[in-house]
Amino acid sequence: MAGIDVDLVLPRGYVPMPLHGLDRAAAAATALAASLQPADATALRAEIDQRADLLAALAASGVRYCGMGMHMADGEPIVTWLTVWVLETGTPAENPRAMLLALAEGDPEAASGADVELVTIDGKPMMFRERITDLPVPEVPGHHDADETAPVYQLRATVPSDDGAALAAVELSTAFVSHGPDFRRLVVDIARSVTFTSTGDSTAALNIPTRLKL
């Protein structure tokens, strides 16, 4: 099956996380722990291992991009995370909008309070899912109780290719829940910029310019 390249445009300020060569990246980060106090070094190594495991799991699930963004709101730093999944169905769909509708109807999150909406923007069908959910807090020794959770705001845009043979999902997440809706326009603009190109071989890539086209 031919691979699918996905091009999209991100706003400035997002730092990509490594999804490949994780052992090398983790070793370089762990080396920084040598200059810390023992307790801090242990906590840092534990966090690095968890981040590496998470990124490896994301890459295995079809994520092609994961980035962290830093923003300012009311004089306070706000951290957001962007992830981009690409799913190649391998079978063109006569009606990509109907395919999105089927996904929306089968989304278990819609039944649990998430807002799911199908829209057409710039002549392209898209699906947006917005929710606040409780997710596990990463386990860092001495920093929080086991099994602790925290609320997280998430907004996902799903965009099909024109022939319905591929889907791209762009998801923004932030623990700064009250500021989550402030990033709706950002996610919409990223979704508007998504384009698909067949590579003609089995190697797929994600090409990301860094400045958002408005």
Rank of each mutant, 00 (worst) to 15 (best):
A98G: 14
M99A: 14
M99W: 08
L100R: 07
L101F: 09
A102R: 12
A102D: 14
A102C: 09
A104I: 04
G106L: 09
D107G: 07
P108E: 01
P108F: 05
P108V: 04
P108D: 03
E109Y: 09
A110W: 03
A110I: 01
A110P: 03
A110Y: 03
S112V: 09
G113M: 01
A114T: 02
E117C: 04
V119L: 14
T120L: 06
T120A: 10
T120P: 04
I121G: 05
D122K: 12
D122P: 07
K124M: 08
M127N: 07
F128P: 03
R129W: 03
E130L: 06
E130F: 05
R131K: 14
I132S: 02
I132H: 00
D134P: 04
D134F: 14
V137R: 05
V137F: 03
V137I: 08
E139Y: 09
E139A: 13
E139I: 03
V140P: 03
P141Q: 01
P141L: 03
H144M: 11
H144W: 08
D147Y: 14
D147G: 05
D147M: 11
T149P: 02
A150S: 13
Q154S: 15
L155V: 07
L155I: 11
L155E: 02
A157F: 10
T158I: 15
T158D: 09
T158G: 13
V159H: 09
V159P: 13
S161G: 15
S161W: 00
D162C: 08
D162V: 09
A165F: 08
A166W: 08
A166H: 11
A166Q: 10
L167R: 09
A168P: 15
A169D: 12
V170I: 15
E171F: 07
L172E: 02
L172C: 00
S173R: 14
S173D: 03
T174H: 00
A175Q: 12
V177G: 01
V177Q: 00
V177Y: 00
S178Q: 12
S178C: 05
H179R: 14
G180L: 01
P181T: 02
D182Q: 12
D182P: 04
F183E: 01
R185K: 10
V188S: 06
I190D: 00
A191V: 00
R192D: 06
R192M: 11
S193C: 02
S193K: 00
T195V: 07
T195S: 15
T197G: 11
T197L: 14
T197V: 12
S198T: 12
S198L: 13
T199V: 06
T199G: 06
G200E: 08
D201V: 04
D201F: 12
S202P: 03
T203S: 15
T203W: 15
A204L: 07
A205Q: 13
A205C: 11
